[in-house]
């Protein structure tokens, strides 16, 4: 795709989103939809702006980001190790792979009460849900990456007498970087979703709790403002990751698959 056509696609996308927002604004301002049901986008932005100046809300946001970040780090490490182990031992792969590939059909949230019973009513079960949501995407993409390294690269490295450690660090790791990036993007989203959903259900703190609190309080403005925040944060994180990916994988026309 040339730069020009991708620019015009960006333009069309922007046009679609802005016309949707404009319509939403219009429908709300004209009073076609009750303000308890939906608030105009401008009000969402305005309310969000005010919320970002309240210490309590900033604390909630920090709690959520902190939990999501911890969940992501644990999930990435756990996923990469599990993916590598599955690649290394075909027996483990045969046992674990079917579970991993159907992982997202498991309702992880159903485990939340159990996790609270085990870990207590604190941040740990929240992080645990984030980890459970995110690690499988990382493990699967790590495995996929390792399995798709051309055998000729392995043979070349062996002929050159590369040690096991150098092979892992200098061949396998760079070779699977595109897959790791794909896994990381998914894991980041899943960790964020997992943490917010967990906070939604029972946690006394965090963004998810704030949304749920606003909802129970019929505070539609705050609810929508926070939902807007969640969407903005998710989208910006993805955008940043895609930019990093483009830069890192600039020279890999052959391996940079999605």
């Amino acid at each position: 795709m040339s730069a020009r056509s991708s620019l015009s696609y960006d333009g069309i996308r922007l046009l679609l989103i802005s016309s949707f927002l404009f319509l939403l604004e219009l429908v709300c301002q004209l009073g076609w939809v009750q303000s308890q049901v939906m608030v105009p986008p401008t009000v969402m932005v305005h309310t969000l702006w005010k919320l970002l100046h309240s210490d309590a809300m900033v604390a909630d946001i920090a709690v959520t980001f902190g939990a999501a970040f911890q969940a992501l780090v644990i999930a990435v490490v756990l996923g990469m190790v599990l993916g590598w182990l599955m690649h290394r031992w075909s027996r483990l792969r045969d046992v674990v792979y079917p579970v991993m590939s159907s992982w997202y059909s498991i309702p992880v949230f159903a485990l939340y009460p159990m996790l609270i019973a085990f870990m207590g009513l604190n941040q740990r079960p929240v992080i645990a849900i984030g980890v459970l949501m995110a690690f499988a995407a990382m493990a699967l993409n790590t495995l996929r990456g390792l399995q798709s390294i051309p055998t000729v690269l392995n043979k070349s490295a062996r002929i050159m007498g590369v040690s096991h450690f150098s092979f892992l660090l200098r061949v396998q790791l760079p070779a699977i970087l595109p897959s790791l990036m794909t896994g990381f993007k998914m894991a980041a989203t899943y960790a964020f979703i997992g943490v917010i959903m967990a906070e939604f259900i029972l946690s006394p703190r965090g963004l998810g709790h704030a949304i749920s609190f606003a909802y129970n309080d019929f505070d539609t403005r705050t609810m929508y403002a926070l939902m807007l925040l969640v969407i903005l944060v998710s989208a910006s994180v993805q955008w940043v990751l895609i930019q990093i990916e483009r830069r890192v994988l600039a020279h890999r026309a052959t391996l940079g698959s999605v």
Binding site: P150, V152, L153, K155, S156, M160, G161, V162, S163, S166, R170, V171, P174, A175, L177, H251, R252, T254, L255
Partner: peptide
């Protein structure tokens, strides 16, 4: 080998140096 065995993440010079560096 018959198949392309160059490491796509390394420049030509780094590819050639690979065995000397990590061998």
């Amino acid at each position: 080998f018959q198949q392309d065995a160059s490491f796509p993440w390394l420049t030509v010079a780094d590819n050639i140096a690979f065995g000397l560096r990590y061998g």
